[in-house]
Design a protein around this nucleic acid. Structure first.
Lengths: 333, 333
DNA sequence: CCATGTTTTGCACACGTTAACAATATATAT
DNA sequence: ATATATATTGTTAACGTGTGCAAAACATGG
């Protein structure tokens, strides 16, 4: 039914091997015949049968983009930016397959026969099991968003600790001392990093660390809302809150509004992530832009490099994050 | 390197044919041998080579989830909900491949050899070229979000026209007469449908249609913002604005705030989509929930049905949408 | 025991492609 | 012209799986 290289061979009066070589631009074939063959292929609308090709070359043209989960904990904006970034680099010839690690019961189906390479947007330490599994099966992998000590792995991430510290320092520079933090989802590495940055800033500025000001969240709106409620019911209310992501910052903002407080006049808020929505909030949100899309793009470039050229040196690449100053922070006397 | 059915055959003392049949649960094979073989396969951690399998059965286990574009016009929340819905149904055995139609220069690479089936989240009439291409190549397809007249196609969508009408009626019920609309991106079918619903509601209630109250947008925040600015600079300002999606509603809200107006006291706003964020806005946004995730789920079920059982009857399935009443609309005297 | 029918297994080829090696054509040097 | 090197093409097998058909094993009835 479908046109194969043998059909082309017949029409061109050559062997199918020659056709195969011609279409793959082998230097063995004379330019003249090459062109003739390519022309016929074009005319016949020939599309190579990937299954056959992959069977013998032992490749798929699949690149897996894995998230720790596609459910709670992965915000739409974060997800979307990652996919966009990766997809913008993946060429036609690769398929981008999106999966949550938690979609699998076991990892039997994650094999080099299924994926040429894997990009993991890693959000939790629990992913390590998956990572080691992938490495053991010799599938090229690039890990985004988390640092893996193993030195054969390529990791691409922002230094959340430094970025958080920067954000909190900005609050301190504006005269704030009673600074609270709403933490991210427990177990996520990013949660810990951002907390560290917060602590670093306070400690370097010799500000007393008040444990009441450290409240757990889960990275979603609602948890930001309830966390803020908790903070506002304290005997001593903080003058500024650093939220471990923008979604929670929005939740926190609304809790403040609900209590009749004004942002930033009564309480300042800083977020983390720079969701596409954050600039349109009221007040617009001061936050940290991690350039997730860039990270995705970089990861995609790396994995293709890894697949096609087998450059296997592990490395940790830090991408720049940037504090975006808007209007949710006020000067504190 | 990898274990094949021949390896299993050797260990079981049978031919590879028997192994193949046993693992595929052929009724030809005695249960006893079947079990023995399966056990060995298990032990050896056998994973079938998809390329080989697909080559002979002429299948892939790929399901393509296509969007009109992965860039501007597809909001993070919408994208995320769709993927989540589809992914929750796709079983381990299928790969979910995500693509933007505009990623392709031509459709040569979209063949039945690449995709067992395609789910298209269609946002624009321009997709029709793609759709006909897919049909011509006899690839099973399910279209989400848009109605295609061709009667061999399965479409799943909400009736945006009715839902919009309902939303605008709600404004009218609350005493509003000067109701504006911010349109979606030009060329998108949804844009038109929602406009129709808006017009339906006005006409049925014999409210004069003011062309100044109909303003173009592009479905993103910014366009909502500028559209609202335009509306607020009119000699006669509307008392309520129906926004064709939530993102624009948020932009519009902020434009109102910027002008010193209060929502809903000075102006009422209704959105469309029920973004995950909308309930946390201040004021929380009255909007239409289209249950995108359900649509994705339904689409996934359909395409699998289509692939595995070849039920080829076209149909148009409408899913329920629901007006979610929150706090962005006030009673108008 | 044989003849016949039924259940279970194996042989051999096919799927469309690549690649090692052999074979041929062409160019170059003597 | 001949020998040798080089460029170009063809022959053949292989990748791992499924399947039509032939073969073998087993069961049944006489």
């Amino acid at each position: 039914m479908n046109v194969t290289i043998k059909d082309i061979a017949r029409l061109a009066g050559v062997s199918h091997t020659t056709v195969s070589r011609a279409l793959n631009n082998s230097p063995l074939i004379k330019d003249e015949t090459k062109n003739k063959i390519k022309e016929i292929a074009q005319q016949l609308n020939y599309v190579p049968n990937l299954n056959a090709k992959n069977l013998v070359t032992d490749r798929t043209f699949n690149i897996g983009l894995f998230f720790s989960t596609l459910n709670i904990g992965t915000t739409p904006s974060f997800f979307n930016q990652t996919v966009k970034g990766v997809n913008s680099i993946i060429k036609d010839k690769y398929n981008l397959i999106i999966k949550g690690i938690d979609d699998y019961k076991d990892f039997n189906l994650v094999t080099s026969k299924r994926f040429d390479g894997i990009i993991l947007m890693s959000q939790s330490e629990k992913d390590n099991l998956f990572i080691y599994n992938v490495i053991e099966k010799k599938i090229p992998i690039v890990v985004l968003n988390r640092e893996i000590k193993c030195d054969s792995i390529i990791c691409i991430l922002t230094d959340d600790r430094i970025a958080s510290k920067q954000a909190v320092n900005y609050l301190i520079d504006n005269g704030h001392k009673d600074i609270a933090i709403i933490l991210g989802k427990e177990g996520f590495k990013s949660t810990e990093k951002r907390k560290q940055g917060y602590l670093d800033a306070l400690m370097e500025n010799k500000i007393f660390i008040n444990n009441d000001f450290i409240v757990q969240g889960t990275y979603d709106f609602k948890s930001g809302y309830t966390a803020m409620e908790k903070l506002l019911s304290l005997p001593k209310v903080p003058s500024a809150v650093f939220c471990s992501n923008d979604d929670m910052a929005i939740g926190a903002m609304n809790a403040a509004f609900q209590m009749g407080l004004k942002v930033p006049d009564d309480i300042s808020i800083v977020g983390f992530d720079d969701n596409s929505i954050s600039q349109f909030l009221n007040p617009s949100l001061t936050t940290v832009n991690r350039h997730i899309e860039d990270i995705g793009r970089e990861g995609a470039k790396m994995i293709i490099e890894l697949i096609e050229n087998c450059e296997a040196n592990g490395m940790i690449k830090y991408m720049d994050a940037e504090l975006v100053i808007r209007k949710s922070v006020s000067k504190n006397a």
